[in-house]
């Protein structure tokens, strides 16, 4: 029965990774932007929430609601002012610029908040759990997973039911033709990055409450997020969730065999999936 428990914990962990990955999947799917600063943006949002919580004395969930629009504006400006200039055939400019951004964010956070590890406190919610038969799950991991599903449902709704979503899909398929139809790709991209950073804020809420964080934890989170996006397939948000779950389950199963194998098992699962399906499990967009 312990196996069921391991798998359930892995699935819930996968929810966290999917949440990390959803914003990445969005920008990757729409504008093929490999954002190497995504992990650091999550950490930055976590610090923002922490500041709001400690300055205004608010509940972390309320603080996240305040942080989200700030992150949206930051994303919009970042995309409009910097990242739009890097998009094109060559993948080096976006890669390098976001790598640079990653180094800048990490060290700016280090200057501002020191290297001490921080945590956003949720009070009694942190330790609350529910039991179902042989399996006991924490309320917070459950909430994380539910949030991941809600985020994906929400993003899919925007994608397939709204006019801005239509603009996203059209620009993703062919920015030149889309611009002939009156869409301005630079604005579409800017709003997509803003939206991605709202998702980042939600991810940051759970990153900050579930474990300690410091200015340097971004890249380690980023790599799981990328694995989830790539395993899932370009442009498919449900694929990203599946990818996150695969990584999460591989990690908990690996850890149950030998604690030192946890992260290694996740990476190996990624390599195996990619060896069999180089374009991921559910590729929607054509690269």
């Amino acid at each position: 029965m312990i196996w069921i428990d391991t798998i359930v914990q892995g699935v819930l962990l996968g929810g966290l990774y999917a949440l990390f990955a959803a914003g990445l999947s969005l920008v990757f799917g729409i504008m093929r932007l490999v954002n190497l600063a995504h992990g650091d943006l999550i950490v930055m949002a976590a610090y923002l929430i922490l500041v709001v919580v400690s300055v205004l004395g608010l509940n972390p969930f309320v603080a996240a609601v305040i942080a989200a629009p700030i992150m949206f504006v930051f994303g919009w400006i970042l995309q409009k002012g910097v990242l739009n200039r890097t998009l094109g055939e060559d993948i080096l400019p976006p890669l390098l610029v976001t790598f640079g951004l990653s180094v800048v964010i990490q060290n700016a956070l280090l200057e501002g908040f020191s290297a001490d590890s921080q945590r956003i406190s949720m009070g009694p919610l942190e330790t609350a759990s529910v039991s179902a038969g042989p399996v006991t799950v924490g309320l917070l991991p459950l909430l994380t997973f539910a949030s991941a599903i809600l985020v994906i449902v929400g993003l899919n709704w925007i994608f397939y039911r709204t006019s801005i979503g239509r603009a996203y899909r059209a620009t993703s398929d062919d920015p030149v033709t889309a611009s002939l139809m009156g869409i301005r790709p630079d604005r579409v991209f800017a709003s997509a990055m803003g939206l991605a950073l709202i998702v980042v804020t939600i991810a940051a809420l759970y990153l900050g409450t579930r474990s300690n964080f410091d200015p340097y934890v971004g890249p380690a989170r980023l790599i799981y997020a990328f694995e989830a996006v790539i395993i899932g397939g370009l442009g498919s948000l449900w694929g990203t969730l599946a990818g996150g779950v695969i990584i999460g389950v591989a990690q908990t199963v690996g850890a149950s065999i030998n604690p030192e194998w946890q992260i290694l098992a996740g990476h190996v699962a990624f390599l195996v999936v990619l060896l069999i399906r180089p374009r991921g499990l559910f590729p929607r967009a054509v690269d």
Binding site: V82, R85, T86, L92, P93, L96, V97, F99, G100, L101, S102, V103, V104, Q106, N107, A108, L110, E111
Partner: peptide, 21 residues
């Protein structure tokens, strides 16, 4: 200046990539 040099390095890299590829 501690981490400042990394910030400068990152910004310089970004500027070069944007304006002088």
């Amino acid at each position: 200046f501690g981490a400042v040099y990394l910030i400068v390095l990152g910004l310089l890299g970004i500027a070069i990539m944007l304006f002088a590829q």
